[in-house]
Write a protein that binds this DNA or RNA. Structure first.
Length: 787
DNA sequence: ATATAATGCATTTTT
DNA sequence: TGCATTATAT
């Protein structure tokens, strides 16, 4: 019998403290590889076994499904009884969906609301902008969509934003936001950001709902707290009864425990606010903070490099990772002439490591800053026959054929889902063109009815062609036919019916485009995914209503009738749920769609050993949370990493540095860092200087296998000369920084205001004083000299 | 209504 | 440079 007391011994002192701390909010600052998941899972196990907490009283929030699954599994492994089912261990979004399915009616949403992913919401925004007759040049729908997303993350509703709108841009955006939100609501749909924002709204508008969840979840744990955005921050506050507005007479507040590492915050561009973790102690004055600095992953050399780099970021809580894994070998550096050469070096090293029996390819990962960089590696890997797997890129559920079928399923589950309905209107081709679609849209607007309703009354639409009308009739008949069979079928049966009866499959089968062959295969896989879902389905994600009914509200939960015996704790969850767990619940289309919307590609990121001798390639962002015995950090060039677009902004450059920190700390034993002197970007070659992050790694930690390129030895102008000899006067290209004084041949003396771009494309803005003003130059060509 | 040419655009992306 | 989306001719 696994005793937790005993297992507390495999924790170090601060870890143990983090596990056993009680009575006030807790912030665990967990450096990379410091056993964060271990601490979280032990803490949960400790709550259950030592502090008498019932599983149903625990809410553990993660950002990814993978993290949630892992946590759940590891908690179960620690427990003597299998009691984890009643816990909510899930992502922010899943938890919100569960709440909203239950309570969304109060906001006017059906409990079977559709979840729009970012592609759907972009599409809807496009429709909205078209409806508003906006010039897509001046008001790009894509940008509007992104801005609305940001506003929602900041919990700014359209009214508030509209009131404060000043510029024309803002006013149009406010209008689009309003209309977009109305369209979503009419379609019974929520986008990803709504899931959080609307849950916050719900808890704020209905104190009884908030209190219900506060009574129910006595323990709230949040993983990766540095990645929370404002909305998620507010959500957590509401769940634990946000400090100041808390009612002092009320029941004691739930206990909050958050885990994170500000140095690993790499998602600010998506709204994550580092301030949430930095200000935790201010937000929760009673809070206790525990620092985990012992790293169980990497050698000391690797950690020293990581520490040195991250130390360059200002205003950081000092934290020094250390390891007892030994110093380890030095980091290997390599400067390639071009990106092919760089890839060849990587392949050569992997082969060598393999031949020497040190590491297998599956223990190796290659990281890069942008997806586009994967191409060269792919080329070279294929040519050399080294098996690889790319993580990321076009995902399964983003493929056109999958999205098409998905749209059918969504319309069947929610006929008012306009975006999906319009997607499939003419897919496969059935002669309903833009003209027909527009006249239906117009008709719907005039009659103030939904698109779906207008479609069914197409004969009343003014100016519609008879030919189109006939096609629409057939289409609605087809939908009705499918609607009829859907409720009594499993998701996989519905998919097959859609594939057959719409003629989608036969269209692909008759096509001679080779791409369509793989489309058919993908659809077959999709059916398999659905079958798999049906077989592993263990009850509705959101509960067949009231898994947590009054039991959690009332004093004592009724003992679960026939539920999980020997586990009274689970009763809170299982008591009222009809036929869950014991009798397998029938998975509905809504369940299936939710799974797909929320649980993207589960097989995206490979587990440590299931890659079967395959090298893993991915962006640095995807690498977060993973570890590999051997890591190649490639493209270490200013302009690539740090990315060009970040060079001007201090905050963004700091985020790039954190990304470098994340990359370095993924490596267990061997770390390679490489750069290329020349890299072709969009056809034209560019000469990039070494990444500043390379300079930030102490010299003695790196052994350079090749320290300089034969092509562009530190001064790009040689390379430029050889290509266009006449265009370059014999003048040094100055290295400029903001504040430098320079002279220009015709404008005279000036001060550098801004430096942007990299290598040959470095631009500088120089202020020559009141008479001349500011001018922009391409440093490479401008006749300027540094003083 | 659809196949083709032309244009424009190009970090990162847990959900 | 290559892709994805839009304008154009049939």
């Amino acid at each position: 019998m696994p005793s937790l007391e005993l297992s507390l011994n495999d924790l170090n002192a601060p870890q143990r403290e983090a596990v056993t701390h009680s009575g006030s909010p807790l912030l665990i600052i967990a450096g990379a590889g410091s056993g964060k998941t271990r601490v979280l899972t032990y803490r949960i196990a400790h709550l259950l076994e030592q502090r008498g907490v019932r599983p149903g009283e625990i809410l553990a929030i993660t950002f990814t499904n993978k993290a949630a699954a892992e946590m759940k599994q590891r908690v179960e492994g620690l427990l003597s009884s299998r009691a984890a089912n009643a816990m909510w261990v899930m992502t922010f979004h899943s938890a919100c969906v569960r709440i909203l399915r239950r309570e969304g009616g109060r906001l006017g949403y059906p409990s079977s609301f559709t979840i729009y992913d970012s592609a759907d919401s972009k599409r809807l925004m496009q429709l909205v902008c078209k409806e508003m007759d906006l010039d897509p040049k001046r008001f790009p729908p894509k940008s509007f969509s992104a801005q609305v997303s940001n506003l929602k993350n900041e919990l700014v509703d359209y009214d508030t934003f509209g009131e404060n709108a000043q510029t024309e841009q803002e006013k149009k955006l406010a209008e689009a936001y309003t209309l977009y939100q109305r369209r979503l609501h009419e379609a019974g749909a929520m986008d990803f950001d709504d899931l959080i924002m609307l849950t916050v709204n719900l808890l704020e508008m209905f104190p009884d709902v908030a209190e219900y969840y506060r009574r129910r979840f006595r323990h709230v744990l949040v993983d990766e707290y540095q990645d929370t955005n404002h909305a998620q921050y507010r959500l957590v506050r509401l769940l634990v009864g946000g400090g100041r507005d808390a009612d002092p007479d009320a029941f004691p507040p739930p206990e909050l425990c958050v885990v994170g590492d500000a140095d690993q915050s790499i998602y600010a561009f998506r709204g994550a606010t580092i301030r949430n973790i930095l200000e935790f102690e201010a937000d929760y004055p009673e809070a206790r903070t525990i620092l985990l600095e012992q790293n169980y992953r990497s050698t000391q050399n690797i950690l020293n490099a990581a520490n040195a780099v991250i130390q360059r970021n200002p205003d950081r809580r000092e934290k020094k990772l250390w390891s007892d894994q030994g110093i380890g070998p030095k980091i290997t550096g390599y400067v390639a002439d071009n990106e092919h050469d760089e890839a060849a070096f990587v392949v050569g090293e992997i082969d060598k490591l393999h031949d020497e029996g040190e590491f297998t390819p599956s223990q190796v990962a290659v990281f890069y800053r942008t997806n586009a960089q994967s191409r060269v590696f792919e080329d070279v890997f294929i040519r050399t026959g080294l098996p690889y797997k790319i993580v990321g890129g076009v995902r399964f559920y983003e493929r056109r054929e999958i999205r098409d079928i998905l749209a059918y399923l969504r319309v069947l589950a929610n006929p008012e889902d306009t975006v999906s309905l319009r997607r499939i209107l003419n897919v496969p081709k059935r002669g309903i063109g833009d003209r027909a679609e527009e006249s239906i849209e117009l008709f719907a607007a005039r009659e103030r009815i939904s698109f779906a309703q207008a479609l069914r009354r197409a004969q009343d639409a003014p100016g519609i062609a008879t030919r189109s009308l006939k096609a629409i009739r057939e289409f609605t008949a087809l939908l009705e036919e499918l609607e009829e069979l859907a409720p009594s079928s499993t998701p996989s049966e519905v998919i097959e019916a859609v594939l057959q009866r719409t003629g989608y499959l036969s269209e692909l089968a008759n096509s001679k485009d080779i791409q369509d062959e793989s489309r058919v295969e993908n659809l077959e896989e999709f059916v398999d995914v659905a079958r798999e879902f049906e077989n592993t389905f263990s009850g509705p994600l959101y509960g067949g209503e009231e898994e947590d009914g009054e039991a959690a509200l009332g004093a004592e939960p009724a003992e679960g009738a026939g539920g999980t015996a020997g586990d009274a704790d689970a009763a809170a969850e299982s008591a009222e749920t009809e036929g869950e767990a014991a009798e397998p619940a029938e998975p509905t289309l809504v369940d299936f769609l939710e799974q797909i919307a929320l649980v993207a590609d589960t097989d995206q990121i490979p587990d440590a050993d299931d890659t079967g001798g395959v090298v893993t390639l991915m962006t640095l962002h995807s690498a977060k949370g993973l570890e590999f015995p051997v890591v190649f950090l490639t493209g270490m060039e200013d302009g690539v990493f740090p990315h060009m677009r970040t060079l001007g902004e201090k905050a963004e450059l700091e985020e790039e540095r954190r990304l470098a920190y994340v990359g370095i700390t993924r490596a267990r034993q061997r770390l390679y860092i490489s750069r290329s002197a020349v890299r072709s970007a969009w056809g034209t070659p560019s000469y990039n200087p070494a990444s500043r992050f390379l300079d930030e790694v102490p010299k003695d930690l790196v052994e350079w296998r090749r320290a300089e390129s034969a092509i562009a030895p530190s001064r790009p102008k040689f390379a430029a000369q050889s290509r266009k000899p006449s265009s370059r006067p014999t003048r040094e290209v100055p290295t400029l920084e903001v504040g430098d004084k320079v002279t220009h041949d015709s404008f005279g003396m000036g001060t550098v205001q801004l430096v942007d771009g990299v290598g040959d494309r470095t631009k500088a803005r120089i202020d020559f004083g009141a008479d001349i003003g500011e001018k922009d130059f391409l440093v490479k060509f401008a006749p300027i000299e540094k003083l």
